[in-house]
Amino acid sequence: MKPARFNYHRPGNLPDALALLAEHGGAARVLAGGQSLMPLMAMRLTRPEELIDINRIDELKGITADDTAVTIGALTRYTEILRSEVIAAAVPLLAEAIRHVAHHAIRNRGTIGGSLALADPSAETPAVCLALAARVIARSAAGEREIPIDSFFHGLMATELAEDEILVGVRIPKRAASARHAFLEFARRRGDFAQAGVILAPGHTGVPENRAVVFGVGATAWRSSALEGAMGRNIADDVYAALRLEVAAAVEDETADYKARIVTTLAERAMARLA
């Protein structure tokens, strides 16, 4: 289980990294925390010819806040997010969710940018970003753009990021003082990827927008219209019937029934928490 050969690049700043990416395109891979990429390379599920290690690029690290949002640099590690007072106050849902990500030794290396770029459907961080209407900041040698999270995930481990783009950070709106949330997931063992999870985040930014996300079910995390429609009302049984249909549409295999049972149970508990 050794990776195939590659050329190793360790740019010290973002322009150099972007130039390398522009030069090598699809033959290159960005190395962030390596907690997913190194296993994929060891199993030879991916064989980049050029590996661009962004770990020495300081401008990709750190957490900053303005009046309305918190911006987290792509290379910020889970552990740092967990220790951040800014996050605890402004985006507590993110910290709560990251406690479910893997284990301490892995959280010491894994990054929020890596998790978003990987877009694993069972991963907590992308699901939280979807629930909180985050915006992904991506840069290429040609310039920078902001991608609303609702159009960021394209499919199983596929995103809106272009081959020559580096995810530089994510902007998450601060929560309104009155905002509440519920995060529930079911994993077989502590630190495992979720079998399924449900996030309810009504009115996070103060505007009365209900956002509900299901993850670990299907190719990407997705917003549930059934749950979004039901939040803040008396819930009727047909909400869960509609939710089961959404799960069936997302899964399309023999696990659909199992996933639907978990999701409806988690959703019931999440609704009860917010009631």
């Binding site: 390596g34 190194m38 290690d53 552990t79 301490h104 030794a105 010491n108 290396r109």
Partner: peptide
């Protein structure tokens, strides 16, 4: 000072 998986790091890193 922080625990990590040494199989997921390159010596170069």
């Amino acid at each position: 000072g922080e625990i990590v998986r040494s199989c997921l790091l390159l010596a170069a890193q």
